[in-house]
Simulated scan of single mutants.
Amino acid sequence: MNKKILFLVFNLLIFSIKAQKSFSSEYEAGYTLDYKKSNLPNAKSELTTFILMMNKKESYFKSMNVYVADSLKYYKKIKETGNAVLDFKTFSRFSAEYPENIGITIGKIYVTTPITQAYVSYEEPNNIEWTLINEFKKIGNANCQKAITKKYGRNWIAYFNPNIPLSFGPYKFNKLPGLIVELYDDKKDFHYKLYLFKKRKYVCPFANSYKNIKPAKKEHVYQWKKEAFLNTDFSDVLDNADAETIRKLNRNSRKLYDQYNPIELNPN
């Protein structure tokens, strides 16, 4: 029950499509992410997937669940009814642990993300710096080179394929002389792996499909996400739950706050 309710509170509104911003893609990649959302030493990892759309100058990265739901909404295969219970049943299967929409250009990174019932956006300089390491690993049929960087409070290790001359990768990571096919931090809290790459020339009309987005300071965004656990009172969400259930859910929110393990431990 806890997970379903959290999906309702934090993710339901991410699929509200009102205005479209398209992205022109020439290549498409799929990544898995093995992640630990808890900072406990014995935390179990979970698995999710993402899509990366690219052309030679820009990329766009988002959760595969969000991508699928946005597509179904755009082509009117599913729709919101205004009934919270019915909409939850429809959209909960598209819930995303990491619902950020991340656009990358040569000089900037643009992020749109939901914070409870609103959308915020921020931008940051695309200034990641890598150290290339003279080490190689066979991934699939490719001989991939190692690179390391310190970014967002973590030490990251990447392997890129120099035979695919696209300088992009998962999340916000880019600027290597080849597509990133594997990326992980040294604690293995977050581990991305490429599982699909193909040429696919098309225009995605629903890449960033939100309106009434409020600009925010990046340093506030992750704190708001963390505080959202504490700001949820389940007595406002559940109509028929008994008092003990409400207390348990609210206590669990406090645990989630204390154990929150974001990708970015600091904003730089």
Rank of each mutant, 00 (worst) to 15 (best):
E182Q: 12
K151A: 10
N163E: 13
N252A: 10
Y210A: 10
S235G: 13
K175C: 09
K73G: 02
D185I: 08
R200F: 10
I213P: 03
G103W: 00
N261D: 14
V68F: 09
A84G: 00
M64D: 13
P125R: 11
L33T: 02
A142Y: 03
K201S: 12
F15Y: 15
K214R: 15
K21V: 09
G82P: 13
E28A: 12
L6P: 00
I51H: 03
I263W: 08
N208R: 04
P262T: 03
D258C: 03
V221I: 14
P170W: 05
G169D: 04
K226W: 01
K211S: 15
V120Y: 06
L166R: 05
A118N: 14
S38P: 13
Y27R: 03
L194R: 04
M1C: 11
N143Q: 10
Y184H: 13
A69W: 02
A241R: 02
K175A: 10
E58K: 11
I148R: 10
Y152Q: 10
P205K: 15
K36V: 04
V181G: 01
K37N: 14
N42W: 07
T232R: 05
E124C: 07
K3F: 02
T105V: 13
K18C: 03
P41V: 15
T90E: 13
A118L: 12
E46T: 02
I263D: 05
D189I: 05
R154W: 05
K146I: 01
N42T: 12
K172G: 08
K172V: 03
N268K: 11
S45V: 09
E123I: 05
P99Q: 06
K211N: 14
A158M: 07
Y98S: 02
H191R: 01
A243E: 14
F197L: 09
E182F: 08
K218A: 08
V85P: 00
F94Y: 15
P162L: 01
F94V: 07
I164A: 04
L72S: 03
T232V: 11
I133N: 06
S71V: 03
P262Y: 02
S209H: 15
L194N: 07
V203N: 13
F7D: 15
K188H: 06
I115K: 04
N231E: 12
H220F: 01
K172C: 03
K76T: 12
L6F: 07
Y210T: 12
Y27N: 07
N208L: 06
V68P: 01
Y75L: 11
N250T: 05
S71P: 00
K217Y: 03
D70C: 02
N250Q: 08
I106M: 15
K201Y: 09
D34H: 12
K21Q: 08
Y98G: 02
N42R: 13
N266P: 00
M1G: 15
Q117V: 11
Y119C: 01
L179A: 01
N141L: 13
L265W: 10
I157M: 04
G107I: 08
N127D: 15
E80M: 09
Y27W: 06
E100W: 02
L33S: 06
K150P: 00
K217R: 08
G153K: 01
S71E: 09
E46H: 11
S59K: 02
T113L: 10
H220K: 14
M1I: 15
F234M: 14
A43Q: 08
K44H: 10
K77R: 12
P125V: 14
Y184K: 14
F23Y: 04
N240S: 10
E264N: 13
I180N: 07
L183A: 09
E129V: 13
A207K: 07
N11I: 00
L72F: 12
